[in-house]
Design a protein around this nucleic acid. Structure first.
Ligand code: MN
Ligand code: MN
Length: 336
DNA sequence: GACTGGC
DNA sequence: GCCAGTCAACGCCAA
DNA sequence: TTGGCG
């Protein structure tokens, strides 16, 4: 990203024009619902992607508004973060519905989810309609294809980004199987131990496996599936792995859903492998003190002293520049 | 953060 | 003109 | 079928 593209009025003036989009049908794979329920109609049918070149210009607002009171980080800091991290973040947003959580008054203010893009968003922001069976209407999901769209979304007061596990072209088939390791009362050391046990199990099964921090208290282990199986199959795999780990480490891990019965054990949540279930995007900022982010890790990082609160909007871009390659990227590419 | 509808 | 309200629902599993 | 869960 080059700062020369930024004027002092806070406008993004990039002499960039949207490509004509290739109008191939958005829906190919989702067509055959793989026999899974009456989801057949829930296919993106229309898009508002631009059909003619349009200048993209984001007019930023309230850049000095404090979003993280304890640290004094501002909305401008947040926008700077997302701009700087966008080369690593955008691959995960490409062709994927995104759900916003907006905090127009910072992390201490009122927040709300937003799936359906409001009518006032500019034409050059891509949205894709997906049918919602229960509400009997189309939801026009945001799809952040480029840094301008991303920053427009962030300027709306969006802090965390949640993404689908599947892409628009393959809505029924996720890119990954996720195991969400949730400590609550459990010591983080146990999370690390469980993560390594998962890695070791995947190694035994010849399954590739990647990891990131959640940005909050836990870790997310992701197994690439290459969009070759259904959510149901992903969930079956996740449940199997989770069961094996929980049986192996019964004192520190559990898959029990009742919070009370978990005690101080780490909850291995595999149920997030489902249609329309969301994952905190890699590199997403979190609305928590310290402005932590969901940070991809190398397996060599998954050892004490790992402190996941140490990855923040202030240092993550520099860390990635140093690291150069995103250690999680394989989750988008590998096909086991 | 931006917009809408009721007063 | 001002102010309050809206901006999401969901799939899954155990009981 | 419902309720709890994330
Ligand atoms: Mn979690
Ligand atoms: Mn407001």
């Amino acid at each position: 990203m080059r700062y020369k593209e930024w004027t002092d009025e806070g406008l993004l003036r990039q002499p960039v024009f949207v490509r004509f989009r290739d109008d191939k049908p958005v829906s190919d794979a989702a067509k055959k619902g793989a026999g899974s329920r009456e989801r057949d109609q829930e296919v993106p049918v229309e898009s508002t992607a631009p059909r003619s070149p349009l200048p993209r210009e984001v007019k930023f607002s309230n850049l000095d508004k404090v979003f993280w009171p304890e640290e004094g980080y501002t909305k401008g800091d947040l926008i700077d973060y997302y701009r700087a991290i966008s080369p690593w973040l955008l691959p995960y947003l490409k062709d994927r519905p995104v759900v916003l959580t907006r905090y127009p008054d910072g992390i201490a203010g009122k927040s709300f989810f937003q799936k359906d893009a409001p009518g006032f968003v500019p034409d050059w922001i891509r949205t894709e309609k997906i049918w919602s069976e229960d509400t009997q209407r189309y939801i026009g999901y945001f799809v952040a294809e480029d840094v301008e769209s991303l920053l427009y979304i962030i300027n709306m007061g969006t802090i965390p980004l949640h993404i689908w596990g599947s892409r628009l072209t393959t809505l029924e088939q996720p890119d990954w199987c996720i195991l969400d390791l949730d400590p609550k009362a459990a010591p983080f050391l146990h999370v690390l131990k469980i993560a390594r046990a998962t890695k070791s199990l995947c190694d035994d099964l010849a399954l590739p496996c990647f990891i990131k921090t959640s940005g909050s208290t836990g870790l997310h282990v992701l197994i690439p599936l290459g969009r070759q199986c259904t959510y149901e199959q992903a969930r079956t795999l996740g449940g199997l792995l989770a069961r094996v780990i929980a049986a192996e480490l019964p004192d520190i891990a559990t898959i029990t859903r009742q919070v009370e019965r978990r005690g101080a054990r780490v909850y291995i949540d595999y149920v997030q492998n489902g249609y329309r279930r969301l994952l905190v995007a890699p590199f997403s900022a979190r609305p928590l003190p310290g402005a932590p982010v969901s940070m991809p890790l190398a397996w060599s990082d998954v050892t004490p002293p790992l402190d996941i609160r140490k990855f923040t909007i202030k240092n993550a871009p520099a860390l990635m520049k140093k690291r150069k390659d995103d250690p999680l990227r394989g989750v988008l590419e590998l096909k086991p």
